[in-house]
Design a protein around this nucleic acid. Structure first.
Lengths: 210, 210
DNA sequence: CCCCTCATCTTGACAGTGAGCAGATGATTC
DNA sequence: GAATCATCTGCTCACTGTCAAGATGAGGGG
């Protein structure tokens, strides 16, 4: 009975699930998505190579749980933004900056988030978090008091889709060095606000012109 | 040393380099980036596992060559578009459709293209092709006769950056199922033209007039 | 002609990975 | 106490990328 530090954590070997998630995040950050190894994540918490199986099934399960947690963190940040006193354009700029900041602070995680279908990972909670991200963005754009969209195909969502697409596209292109590559920190450039200024975020064509 | 290739298949085992590229493309398309295997690509052309080493160095070299070829194909398609008689908005819509079509027809390849930094692959030709894509897009947007941008930071490029970001962002988000997921073929939806209609593509801040 | 050189390709290893299976281990409950 | 059950270990297997050393064959002087 190897009684390692029994501090607080009840060890059978503790709450392995959380420990493995943290360890996996470190490995992912260090090695990137391509260099990630489930064995190494297990090794770092001092546990056998097949310990993760009971908690996550397989490697995709682990990465999926990690991505789901990342989505939740991103949504939390977007939802907790302080936007009072800002007009629509100011809100959009603010939320775009937060989106880009998250991507910059969690590059490997951000990479992983948009690669889950490639890993054949389709958890309902993941799709739910994606919807949550859109809703958070839409609520910030149209204001707290605006009535939420009826469905995902509500034309009122169009500006939010456009903002998301533009911000997400710029983020991935900049991280890949395709845009603003001369800038040492393209994620902090003023290119994004300038691009957003070209976008009409006033609202959908609801029987009145822009 | 003779860079002169012989006609057709020169035997030792033919022109392996091209054959391996084709084979790798098939494997990539079938298994995706995550499931790609260099050994399998070699196996399919009936050659040993370490045959690719002489031509590509390692697996990243093979994928890099594949990505470079893909960039060139995309640029070729964008540059050969017939845009005569279209106004700026029509040209943008047309080029966006072509961009999305390429992504839909070559999903695994398109995935790979924006993942090369992750594989530590930095070939000068790859960066050059990215610039070429931007220039093709910009030329299509502002017309053949407009004077090209002086540098990558020329403010006149702003609309092109915005269009690229929006189109690229929508493409990746749609492929990932984050946008328009109820649509069975989100890449052919009319969402993208509607979003582009929200974008002001008229030109840079009019501090100077044409 | 022979022989030499050199690019190309094969063989055979090595370390590392994800996955599956039989069993130890220990907490919980009866 | 004993039985149950989730949890974790050790082992095996097939597979991967990479490397070093050896075959193979084409082309070019002597």
């Amino acid at each position: 009975m190897g009684k390692e530090p029994l501090t607080g954590d009840q060890y059978h070997h503790g709450n392995l699930r959380a420990a493995l998630l943290d360890s996996a995040l470190v490995v992912l950050t260090e090695k990137g998505v391509a260099g990630f190894s489930m064995r190494e994540a297990a090794r770092r918490v001092g546990v056998s190579q097949s310990a993760p199986k009971h908690h996550f099934g397989d490697a995709r399960g682990l990465l999926g749980a990690l991505a789901t947690r990342a989505y939740r963190q991103l949504c939390d940040r977007l939802e907790s933004l302080e936007l009072a006193g800002l007009d629509a354009r100011g809100r959009v700029t603010r939320i775009a900056a937060e989106y880009v900041a998250f991507a910059g602070e969690n590059r490997a995680l951000f990479d992983l988030m948009w690669r889950m279908t490639q890993f054949d990972f389709t958890a309902p909670e993941l799709a739910e978090q994606k919807h949550r991200a859109l809703r958070a963005l839409d609520r910030s754009l149209r204001g707290e008091d605006a009535e939420p969209a009826a469905s995902d195909t509500d034309p009122a969502l169009l500006p939010s889709y456009a903002v998301w697409s533009l911000v997400h596209g710029y983020t991935t292109l900049a991280l890949e060095g395709a845009i603003d590559s001369s800038n040492p920190d393209p994620l902090n450039s003023d290119l994004l606000p300038a691009m957003l200024a070209l976008l009409d975020v006033s609202g959908p064509p609801r029987t009145s012109l822009p």
